[in-house]
Design a protein around this nucleic acid. Structure first.
Length: 274
DNA sequence: AGTTTAACCTGGGTGC
DNA sequence: TGCACCCAGGTTAAAC
C-alpha cells in the first residue's frame, strides 16, 4: 500500500515501540516473501537490540550492532503494533507473515497479502545491491531541478517513467508521479530529455511539496492505508488526476484522460499538461 | 546503456 | 452463486 509517505509514517509509528528493544523472538509464519526469509534469521536476531529504525527510499532499515534488516512493504505490506500480545497470540490474521516479539512484551506483526515485500538481513547494508543502486532522496538537498535537468539530457523515456525510476530519484510512485506532473503542467508522455530546465525546477519543487505534505498528514493518498496505530490516513480529496479519468479537471474543466505507461495507469489533463 | 516487458502474488470489483 | 477477467500503492530480471 505504500508510497514513500506511508513508509515514513510507518517508520515513525514503529520507532517508539521498537528502538532500544530486544528481539526475544522472530516468528516466521510464512517465509515466502519477495525473497524467502532466511531460515537462519530467527537465531541471527534473537536477543539482539534494535539500535535504530531508519528509512532509505521505501526500505525500512532495522539497525543492529551486527548488521541491518532491509525490509520493504511491496504493494500490500503493513506493520501493526500489538501492545497486549500475551492476550492475543491466537489472533493472527491471514497474511500475518512475521512477528517480532519484543522485550517490552509488545509485538510487531508484518502483514502482506501479495507477499511482494521483503525482510532481509545483511552485515554490510552499504554494499547491498538493493541500496547501492538507489538515487537521491527526494526530500534531500541532492535532489533539485538542476540535478533532474542534468541527468535527463538525451533521455528518451517518458518523463513519468524517468521520475519513477529509482536510479534517478527514489520514492516517487505511481500516484505521486501523476500528481506531481499535473502540478508541474508536464505531460506524462513527454520525453525526459525534452523537458526544460525551468520546468524541472518546478517539478522538483512540487515533488518535495507533495511528499512533505503527505508525510505531514500521516500518509494520505492510500485508500486502505492504516498507520501502525491502526488509524487510516486521509484519502486525499486533493488528488487531481489519479483515478479521475473521465472526470473534469479541477483547474480547467477539461476531461481527464488516461493512458497506460509501462503497465501502469496514468491520468493527466490534456489541457493543463503539455 | 537505455528502455520496455513480463513476472512475482492475492483480493476486490465488474460483467456475464 | 459462480466464473472469467481486469485492476491495484513496487521492483527486479530479462528481453529488445
Amino acid at each position: 500500500m505504500p508510497e514513500l509517505p506511508e513508509v515514513e509514517t510507518t517508520r515513525r509509528g514503529l520507532a517508539p515501540h521498537v528502538v532500544g528493544q530486544t528481539i526475544d523472538r522472530l516468528l516466521v509464519r510464512d517465509a515466502r516473501l519477495r525473497w524467502p526469509v532466511e531460515p537462519a534469521l530467527p537465531r541471527q536476531l534473537k536477543n539482539r537490540v534494535v539500535q535504530a529504525l531508519e528509512r532509505r527510499a521505501k526500505y525500512l532499515l532495522f539497525r543492529f550492532e551486527h548488521g541491518t534488516v532491509i525490509s520493504h512493504l511491496g504493494m500490500s505490506g503493513s506493520w501493526r503494533v500489538i501492545t497486549d500480545a500475551a492476550n492475543s497470540e491466537q489472533d493472527y490474521r491471514t497474511h500475518d507473515h512475521l512477528a517480532l516479539l519484543l522485550g517490552s512484551g509488545d509485538e510487531l506483526r508484518y502483514h502482506d497479502p501479495r507477499r511482494f515485500g521483503c525482510f532481509l538481513f545483511t552485515k554490510t547494508p552499504d554494499q547491498h545491491p538493493l541500496i547501492t543502486e538507489l538515487g537521491p532522496e527526494p526530500l534531500g538537498d541532492q535532489f533539485d531541478g538542476e540535478y533532474l535537468f542534468a541527468i535527463s539530457r538525451g533521455r528518451k523515456a517518458p518523463i513519468k517513467s524517468f521520475l519513477m525510476d529509482n536510479h534517478n530519484v527514489v520514492g516517487v510512485g505511481n500516484i505521486y508521479a501523476q500528481e506531481a506532473l499535473f502540478r508541474a503542467g508536464i505531460h506524462p508522455l513527454r520525453q525526459a530529455g525534452r523537458v526544460s530546465r525551468e520546468r524541472y525546477l518546478v517539478l522538483a519543487g512540487v515533488v518535495k511539496e507533495i511528499l512533505a505534505y503527505a508525510i505531514e498528514r500521516g500518509g494520505t493518498t492510500l485508500r486502505d492505508f492504516l498507520n501502525s496505530d491502526g488509524e487510516p490516513g486521509y484519502f486525499a480529496q486533493e488528488l487531481t488526476v489519479y483515478g479521475r479519468a473521465g472526470q473534469q479537471c479541477h483547474a480547467c474543466g477539461a476531461v481527464i484522460r488516461e493512458v497506460r505507461l509501462s503497465n501502469r495507469t496514468t491520468g493527466y489533463c490534456p489541457q493543463c499538461q503539455t
